[in-house]
Design a protein around this nucleic acid. Structure first.
Length: 577
RNA sequence: AGGGGUAUAGCCAAGUGGUAAGGCACCAGGUUUUGGUCCUGGCAUUCCUAGGUUCGAGUCCUAGUACCCCUGCCA
């Protein structure tokens, strides 16, 4: 008691020894691992695994599991395997295997030489099955799938035994071998565990271990025509790999007694399964089935559409591995079903990008600004800081001239209260350049503002005044003559509802797709330095948000930027009041 | 007439009988050549409900309630 308290304190101190950083938050799995380490349960080993099925792309929910499994192994000096649960050849593809490996690597984790496939164990699993048959613990059933369902009973009524349940061992052995040898058509027979048809836990009512599937597997080809069910393959795969802590999501909790039964009957090493709640995020969907539908029905451009919660989508959007890892630590871990606010994810990426992104000036919605007292042919190169949060990022030169673009939102002919951007007679600072006072507004026949004129104060070069006078507003600008054009893609939540799965009023998640989730700006104006932008560069467009070149569509002669996330905007908040 | 889980603030989440951590969001101020960042302060007399045990209960006991998962030859 006092011993365990002391240990807890030590752990906390260790996690917090930087002095000011947040200590690694405790969670129930760390507690279990530490207890196991203390009691010597697995001889001090910590060996986890991340076991995806290659039937889709990884999403942010998987990232939580990846960070958990690899992170815990790292933290406790253990190992983490990458293992594909490829037991269903009808749904799995090599494309998914490759994307999953790329995503795990990108997230920053390394399985070293421990890349495994459940299909590596098909032979061993077959032998295990024979072992159970010989022990009278498994049998070949000729019932159809409909009949098996009927015989299974219901949640409140026990099932009844299959008429084939008591076949002699020799017959089972013969039939099972012939199943493997391809003598029977799909669906004609299965191998079932002989447990208890009246168990209150339905997973124990003689679960199917093998089904006949004359399908080509992406790794084993046509070698097999019987394939193990997940429930039969998973626990033994963990056992074979010597996994100490097998972490999975809540829905497998009631399957655990089955996994335990298998390893017990087989007499093999028993890993310890621990279940945790999967991640849900609001304003998006996380099920692979739904993500697949969005892709197949072209509601998005693909698995890597920047609006998708997939890792490939987030990567293309400009999210960093650091941000995602930090997010996953931030949200904690528990067994209660919960939905994390997407604002928390956005916070995580802003926090990372604030430290790293180079500040640049860009104008999304250009309005011409003419400086009347600045010579027509003069060009100045003004020095600009690349990142005020990181002195080592250095500075760059930005060209300044008589005709500039500013954002239309930064000018108001009739400014509301507390507006401190440009307005007639008002003075603002052009970032890194000069103070300017608005002198004139030019409109077209329809009354639209086409141009704003101003005068600059040459004594404020660099954006400082000698006389100590203050300006409230600072706006970014781009020299018209030097500007580079670019396409900009602004993203919003993919769904209009916090919970798109909420179909209480009869809707389908597709009914809540946000029609404005993508807004394209064809001709934004940017400072010349951005012409060299390439995939992987991280930018902050001053006062707008964080942006990255689109990895698929951006070219030197046609720049395309994705908005990762906007900057926080307290002015927008004030306006709403 | 089943089994397995979970309930702590608007959203996550610590807490393991000694008097409710932390983060996000929100609110109020300060700094600022980004209405960004940063800094300071505020934000649960109460932990699903009702009883009980105890000097002391979010933690223990009893009885309820709500929600999630399980009736694929999916994972």
């Amino acid at each position: 008691m006092s011993d365990s308290e002391k240990n807890r304190e030590n752990t906390t101190d260790t996690g917090n020894n930087s002095g000011n950083g947040p200590s690694a938050p405790s969670n129930f799995i760390r507690t279990i691992i530490e207890e196991d380490l203390r009691s010597g349960k697995h001889k001090g080993r910590v060996h986890t695994r991340f076991p995806p099925e290659p039937n889709g792309y990884l999403h942010i929910g998987h990232a939580k599991s990846i960070c958990l499994n690899f992170g815990l192994a790292q933290e406790y000096g253990g190992k983490c395997n990458l293992r594909f649960d490829d037991t269903n050849p009808t749904k799995e593809e090599m494309e998914y295997v490759e994307s999953i490996m790329a995503d795990v690597k990108w997230l920053g984790f390394d399985w070293e030489d421990r890349l495994f496939f459940a299909s590596d164990y098909f032979g061993q699993l077959y032998d295990y099955a024979v072992q159970l048959i010989k022990a009278g613990k498994a049998y070949v059933d000729d019932l159809s799938s409909d009949e098996i369902r009927e015989y299974r009973g219901t949640l409140t009524r026990p099932g009844k035994n299959s008429p084939y349940r008591d076949r002699p061992v020799e017959e089972n052995l013969d039939l099972f071998r012939r199943m493997r040898d391809g003598e029977f058509p799909d669906g004609s027979r299965v191998l079932r565990a002989k447990i208890d048809m009246s168990s209150p836990n339905i997973n124990l009512r003689d679960p199917v271990m093998y089904r006949i599937l004359h399908a080509t597997h992406h790794r084993t080809g046509d070698k097999w025509c019987i394939y193990p069910m997940y429930d039969w393959a998973h626990g033994q795969s963990d056992s074979i790999e010597g996994i100490t802590h097998s972490l999975c999501t809540l829905e497998f909790e009631s399957h655990r007694p089955l996994y335990d039964w298998f390893v017990e009957e087989l007499g093999i090493y028993a890993p310890q399964q621990i279940e945790f709640a999967r991640l849900s995020l609001n304003y998006t969907v996380m099920s692979k089935r739904k993500l697949l539908k969005l892709v197949r029905d072209k509601h998005v451009s693909g698995w890597d559409d920047p609006r998708m919660p997939t890792l490939s989508g987030l990567r293309r959007r400009g999210y960093t591995p650091e941000a995602i890892r930090n997010f996953s630590e931030m949200i904690g871990l528990a067994k209660a079903n919960s939905t994390v606010d997407i604002a928390q994810l956005e916070y995580a990426v802003r926090e990372d990008l604030n430290k790293r992104a180079l500040r640049m000036m860009a104008v999304l919605n250009p309005l011409k600004l003419v400086i009347e007292n600045y010579p027509e042919d003069k060009v100045e190169e003004l020095e600009a800081v690349n990142n005020p949060e990181d002195e080592s990022a250095g500075t760059r030169m930005v060209p300044f001239s008589r005709e500039l673009y500013i954002d239309r939102e930064d000018f108001e002919e009739h400014p509301p209260k507390k507006y401190f951007r440009l307005a007639p007679g008002k003075e603002v600072r052009l970032k890194h350049a000069y103070y300017v006072i608005c002198t004139k507004v030019i409109k077209d026949a329809a009354g639209n503002i086409t141009e704003v004129h101003c005068t600059h104060d040459p004594a404020t070069r660099g954006g400082w005044s000698q006389d100590g006078r203050k300006v409230k507003g600072t706006v970014q600008w781009v020299s018209a003559r030097h500007a580079v054009n670019a396409e900009v893609r602004l993203y919003d939540h993919l769904f209009t509802r916090a919970n798109p799965d909420d179909n209480k009023d009869g809707g389908d998640f597709l009914d809540y797709l946000n029609p404005d989730s993508l807004q394209v700006i064809k001709e934004a104006k940017m400072e010349p330095a951005l012409a060299a932008a390439k995939t992987g560069d991280l930018y902050q467009f001053l006062r707008i948000g964080y942006f990255v070149p689109d990895s698929a569509d951006s070219r030197p002669d046609h720049l395309v930027f994705n908005r990762t996330v906007s900057l926080k905007d307290s002015w927008a908040k004030i306006q709403q009041k």
